[in-house]
């Protein structure tokens, strides 16, 4: 469970409480205070743990670990980086309600045909109806906007184990872009309840009625830090998203290094022309040798492969992709 740090209203000392707790005792002055979130939605911040340099290093390391290694890591230049604080809805509480299901049932029945041969058949049984009360804890996180360009972040897990603090907008906005939530809380609640309802075996269910709602709700917008870096190579721009808490590269699309055969196509042409400008026999012999070498090199003798090799079209190693 996340720890939230405030200032004690009595002595001003740091005052910690676990996410969802309603009260705690200040360890400096001993006064108990309770936390009210009724006036709005709690806005919590998970502070960034890596700076821009560490984020750049994380990308370089990832590139260096790729197929093209060091060559790839040095071929991309860093252009710029921005820290984003992305809001995520966090819904905690108790999902309470009821669920009623009607299921089809089938049973195996043994029967005999006119020749007396035994066989089994499947017969539809009586529908099975079940009623259950739902009262289970709920802990759900969902992006408060469309963040596909940033990749997948495991904010729910992070928010449950990391220290959060009340969001100080001015201070946070001075360090990066604080994104606005563009998904309503009702939508987050619906998603949370859908996850609650999703459990259980629904095979054979022909009708389902339910009413589930959230009680003891504790609602927060958790702002999660993500670095957005731009790398360039030859005028091309490659955006990268880096988790600013643990330094993981969560989204990037770097193409592989181009590998071009330089000498071989020139040598083949020279060999063929040397033969044909000497004698026709030499031309035939050296062309046959060139064809053999081509087959050995490309593994095929189809025209596009040969044209690609002779034209010096580059081959590319596997790129580096995340998210």
């Amino acid at each position: 469970m996340a720890t939230i740090v405030f200032k004690c209203p009595h002595c001003g000392g740091p005052f910690e409480c676990a996410e969802g707790d309603r009260g705690a005792v200040c360890r400096f002055c001993g006064v108990t205070s309770v936390i009210s979130g009724d006036s709005g939605v709690h806005r919590l911040l998970i502070r960034e743990r890596i700076d821009l340099n560490a984020a750049r290093t994380a990308v370089r390391k990832l590139l260096a670990a790729g197929e093209s290694g060091r060559e790839s890591a040095t071929s991309f230049s860093f252009k710029e980086g921005t820290l984003f604080f992305l809001p995520f809805w966090r819904v905690r509480g108790m999902a309470t309600g009821w669920q009623w299901r009607e299921k089809e049932t089938f049973r195996e029945e043994v029967d005999y045909d006119e020749n007396g041969t035994r066989f089994t058949r499947t017969v539809k049984g009586e529908n099975e109806r079940s009623f259950s009360l739902i009262a289970k804890p709920l802990d759900f996180s969902t992006p408060a906007g469309e963040y596909s360009s940033f990749g997948q972040m495991r904010v729910g897990i992070a928010a449950a184990v990391l220290k959060c603090e009340a969001l100080d907008y001015q201070d946070t906005a001075a360090r990066g872009t604080v994104a606005d939530p563009l998904k309503g809380v009702a939508q987050a609640r619906q998603e949370a309840l859908a996850v609650t309802r999703g459990g259980g075996n629904s095979e054979g269910t022909i009708r389902r009625e339910e009413r589930v709602r959230i009680s003891s709700e504790w609602l927060a917008l958790t702002y999660y830090p993500v670095w957005r870096l731009l790398f360039t190579r030859g005028g091309r721009v490659y955006p990268v998203a880096i988790d600013a808490v643990n330094g993981d590269v969560i989204r990037c699309q770097f193409p592989g290094e181009e590998r071009r055969e330089r000498f071989l196509p020139l040598a083949f042409i020279a060999m063929v022309l040397l033969g044909w400008t000497t004698t026709p026999t030499a031309g035939v012999a050296l062309t046959a040798l060139a064809v053999y070498l081509l087959k050995w090199r490309t593994g095929t003798l189809d025209a596009p492969s040969i044209i690609k090799l002779l034209a010096g079209t580059s081959k590319r190693s596997a790129g580096v992709q995340r998210g």
Binding site: G23, A24, T32, S33, S36, S39, H42, A166
Partner: peptide, 27 residues
């Protein structure tokens, strides 16, 4: 940005001004 939503309220009895204590789950 909207209201941060947090209000930290010291637990002092509104009738006799005595300090009150609270457990983690207490409401």
């Amino acid at each position: 940005m909207a209201d941060a939503g947090f209000r930290i309220v010291p637990l002092v009895c509104g009738r006799c001004a005595a300090r009150m204590t609270a457990g983690k789950e207490q409401v």
